[in-house]
Design a protein around this nucleic acid. Sequence first.
DNA 1: GTGAAAGCGCTAACAC
DNA 2: GTGTTAGCGCTTTCAC
Lengths: 343, 343
Amino acid sequence: MKANTATVTMADVARDADVSVSSVSNYLHGRPYMKAGMRARIADSIDRLGYQVNAVASNLRSGRTHLLKLSIPDLRQMYFSELAEDILAEARVHGYGVIVESTTNSRDRELDSVASMGTRAADGLIFSPLLMNDDDEHVLDGDYPLVLLGERLCTRKVTHVVIANRTAAHDATSHLIAAGCRSIAVVGGVRAIQGQASSRQIRTEGYRDALASAGMGYDPELVYETVGWGSEDGAEAVRRMILDGARCDGIFALNDRLAWGVLRGLRVSGIRCPGDVRVVGFDDVDESAYMVPSLTTVDPGKRDIARIAVQSVIDQITRGSRGPAGMLEAPCSLVFRESSPAV
Amino acid sequence: MKANTATVTMADVARDADVSVSSVSNYLHGRPYMKAGMRARIADSIDRLGYQVNAVASNLRSGRTHLLKLSIPDLRQMYFSELAEDILAEARVHGYGVIVESTTNSRDRELDSVASMGTRAADGLIFSPLLMNDDDEHVLDGDYPLVLLGERLCTRKVTHVVIANRTAAHDATSHLIAAGCRSIAVVGGVRAIQGQASSRQIRTEGYRDALASAGMGYDPELVYETVGWGSEDGAEAVRRMILDGARCDGIFALNDRLAWGVLRGLRVSGIRCPGDVRVVGFDDVDESAYMVPSLTTVDPGKRDIARIAVQSVIDQITRGSRGPAGMLEAPCSLVFRESSPAV
DNA sequence: GTGAAAGCGCTAACAC
DNA sequence: GTGTTAGCGCTTTCAC
């Protein structure tokens, strides 16, 4: 049951069980044809010697490490830590471990993270770029399995997993409209269409789409750009709103943390939610369910993203090539809570 | 600059540069004695061929993977994701990557996580146990580098990194007392002393110490046990408090999420904070700075924990043995904010 | 200063 | 069914 001194190798087990190393290997890989007696002897030796396969040696020979690399901007942001958790779980189901790398808002780290895939320490990469430009796209060249998260890089050469940002933003806005909101602000939106696609931008587009399809005019004044994505930015936006004397009866915050700040800002100013103003967020982070009022928000289906992304890298690994690049879209859905109940 | 077709090995580089593989290896390891001409030829070949060392082969030969394993209960809890982020950063400084494993509240996963260290896929383990018993302690036997986080397992045989839970809880409580609180509740505390040490328990002890040193009586009625550690548990505790007709003027919540819930519960009931009741949390999670009121809380020094833990595993790795087990304590400090300003 | 060569522990043909 | 054997790509003595 134990005896783990230093390094017990397969050869030791073979010797102990009086069989060949390949039989031990066969045993470990659960290969069929093998007499029960031998199987038992091997099992016994392994147990007695406390043998465990040396993953590194196995990796070298087989060319697989059974490790994935996950490269994300920042674990401190709940969206990413929740996503990471789901990816770890999904990878685990497939027998993969995950090397997590946080690029903490540094383009260089993002580049590093990608470049180091050449060392073959991981079998594949799931990468959520935040700062890389389309100009940096060439660093993604290579043949290792790769899945990109989000719309930041729009290479058509690599498999992407995106969420239905536009549709989701459209739906969130339409919900506010259906609930009777006549003047809807977007917190965290962008006024000018920029070159680089970003979720901020796509969500803003979805918002405009919804206004348009409802025959409502688009008022740039109602787009509150924010520096960051934190709750302080959301609260700040509300302060500006009030200073501007802007009156709105619905607020769509482009992520939950912004929405938390919005909720706070409203409360501080004595504006009731959902009474005076309805609020909808985006991300469905765990804590949003416990705000007061609890937050109506877009559930971006992190579980689905995780499932799709992991499935895709693993497919590429098994297939031995990146294969046809695809744009895989994870479905979103609105989660209705107190800040804007379903109509 | 590129040309990365399939697998360029060191032998290819050696051939191309017309030198031996050992020279290439020497070059890569920046070893001194080497004529400039050769150095240049090698550099050129590497560049031209787009060579990158195969980490796996190098691992096998050298016996080091330059990977650490971090095993924590749950990335969704901000305390852990923030800690993980700090550990990733610290490991990175030392040239280590990190395999993150979330044991998601499963004793079996904790055991798995530890057991799999035998495969040598990682050079060392930083492990934050939550559910393992002292009875399971033997699974930690082995010679691989190991650091335990928290006081869950009290083995004296392994290096632990703990935070000054007792002192910090004492200080937090003393602060409330100094601020004039006469009746201080603990949310998330434990009434009965249990066998297993836990941070809940140690923090409760620190609270009692503080009461005692201030000559204040301990009232078990003021200890609000909670099922979980979430904000809903904190809010629930406040509801109970009100139903019980308990009156207190200070609340020490044993973690920030509980404190968020407390803040919410108070507000919902129209109790002002810090006016009627002061509140202090524990963990100094990022978002706590943005609550309304912003939360006074104990900063457990996650950075320090990360630094100490990583430093310790790496020492063990270099030393080649676990060496003398120690109890390393990271310092805590109170962060004063609106929910209970400094006196 | 540089090169030859012996493995690290395992996998997977291939032979029997 | 089971055993033999040739590497996987690199590191590292040890000669020269």
